[in-house]
Design a protein around this nucleic acid. Structure first.
Lengths: 208, 208, 208, 208
DNA sequence: CATGAATGAGGTTTCATTCAT
DNA sequence: AATGAATGAAACCTCATTCAT
């Protein structure tokens, strides 16, 4: 059941285009442009022009260009965490659960390749505080994944001598670098890459 | 044995500090600053101040700020290629050679962590032509590595169903992301990470 | 005795806080902020936030930010004129009347030090017409004061060679600069400064 | 004997117009415009256009618009202090020395009426640190003047019950407000105003 | 080989005000 | 009587680069 729209009572009603509000249009324009030209290579004017609004409107909703970037980070972090939690809660043997999680994160990354492009390239453009917040969320995500690896070791499915933290950094390095080489007109679909990456990872940590 | 300093006889001697020439100082200042603050976050003034020269001097040696960046890319590409070629030429069983190459590239990346930081974050700041040149060199490097994987498959050491190109991207993703998490005051040395990454990769592709 | 609150019967009652209406709150917020940060250093947003209303409300009562400033000027001019007229009408020897007036304007200025701070610093921010109106009122005020000086000269109490207009500018210069140095935690009260300034002025113009 | 011009050896020679360097033209343009339209009412563009240079050139010499303002303050403070020191060192009876100093500061203020206009109107636009520096210099100036008043009291020339510090604030208030009313096409010259102000002040503090 | 001066385009942000309810 | 959205102009400043010695 969709939540009821809150009744707007006061003020000029927000303008929408195709049902998309101004902040939504701004974020999606920013997402596309930051991925294409980089954060510093994109001017605020570029973003607002693409979103079809004025600079004043942007600063009505976002405190700064950096806030726009932060919003992009917040969205992708939230989404990835939700997906991992869903997979982690599935009732499957641990090795299969890890395989499913690995496959899923690759596919999701490829589906949101623009966010992924921005993610590592532009982290240093965020201010200290926001950077810390992103790293903290990222760490939580990694920890959930690592806990699955540890569970697999305890169950005897994965090799005991594997350093679980390092294994997670090893795997996510591969994932985060997808934007550097994967392209939609290439030979492999997201699902195929996901399966292959998951196979390579699982084979790398599986016992005997 | 260090090469003898060539005797300069004519003209003004190049200004050196601790035996380092102006362009050398510029590149190493740029390397440090680009890694620390990003290419766009570093001004030419920052670089020349750190190098102890003036802007005019920089433009005497480099055509543009971008040229400085390109020089950084050129150096790291040259060095990595040389190292891989040396390892590839070793007289070892193929699996051991791949393991050695994997270990070495991790250790080298960590030894040059600033270059590695810049490498992927700033690739898009280079102009079209220079970007193409970098990608071409990068591809050559990957192809040499991939040829070793293929040789391992032909020798029966590695699983035939592994897609060698994908495997290379998979492994180098992990390597290229080292700057995002590895830090010199952390738990693991470069050599340790190198060994672990190589183990994980080899286990992932090794035949039954 | 405070005037009885008029009974409102129809329409939405004006929103009041502690019995202060919206325009009153706006003017006193503006007074404080303009004195503290200057007219140009204070945004309309600052004012309305401090007054606890929104921008729309401000523009409902005042045509512009400048109107707010003008209102501040109008209030202080009205008050000072009233006080001077009261003193001028007193039945005292002319020298004593001038002394009382001088003392009073100093004390009043100090009691309303924020208005005084704004008065000279921000006059040039008013538009042509409003600036003229302020100067006209100011001139009337000075003329009343000057007429007392002239009366004193005619009565033989003040030296004839004193230029009365210049003397008034001389004295009010001192008064208007009080905000530059007087502070409430200082050594001297408003009354003390008033007495001393009046003494210095009177001694300066008194005959023989 | 004029000091020899230091020999310029390096770099592009600074451009001059009528023998006036870029920073000189900038300061004098700023002086005129800040006095006319206020500091906040004058844009950097206004200043550089009036000085016949580009914005970049201005930022080559001054770190900010505020620095330009600070330079104006520094110049006027330096000049006034020098003049007062010269007068204070004269070999005259103390009352005459004070009279001369008072006359001189009025005349000087009127000669530099633009600086005087800016002085009090724009003090609050300076940053904390620079404001403190200005106040400190101002205090030193006042203290020198006050020491002359005290000397007069000790010599029996001035009334003992006059508070010297207050008397100085009283007199300089009058001086600093000259820009509010004095105008070059008016009835009185700077010298005349100076003499009258000095007379009024001296009469105000002179002993019985 | 190297300097310091100067350019000029472009960047982010602020803000008084108007608009549609 | 009052709201919150949106505008659009202008502000200050940065910076890669070129210039005249």
């Amino acid at each position: 059941m969709a939540p009821a729209e809150p009744v707007r009572r006061l003020g000029r009603p927000p303008s929408t285009v195709d049902g998309r509000t101004v902040p939504e249009r701004l974020v999606s324009a920013a997402l596309r442009l930051f991925a294409e030209k980089g954060f510093e290579g994109t001017s605020v004017q570029d973003v607002v022009t693409a979103a079809g609004v004025t600079k004043g409107a942007m600063y009505h909703y976002f405190g700064s260009k950096e806030d726009l970037l932060h919003e992009i980070y917040a969205r992708v972090l939230r989404m990835q965490m939700e997906r991992l939690e869903r997979v982690a809660a599935q009732d499957l043997p641990i090795a299969e659960r890890v395989h499913a999680a690995a496959t899923d994160v690759v596919a999701t990354t490829i589906e949101n390749i623009e966010s992924a492009t921005i993610f590592f390239r532009s982290l240093h453009q965020l201010g200290e505080a926001q950077q810390r917040a992103v790293r903290r969320d990222r760490r939580r995500y990694h920890e959930l994944f690592r806990s699955m690896v540890v569970a697999g070791q305890e169950a005897g499915a994965f090799r005991a001598e594997v350093d679980p933290e390092l294994a997670v950094d090893y795997f996510f390095g591969s994932v985060h670098h997808l934007p550097m080489w994967w392209n939609p007109r290439g030979r492999l679909s997201g699902a195929e890459v996901g399966r292959s990456f998951a196979d390579l990872f699982l084979a790398g940590i599986t016992a005997g």
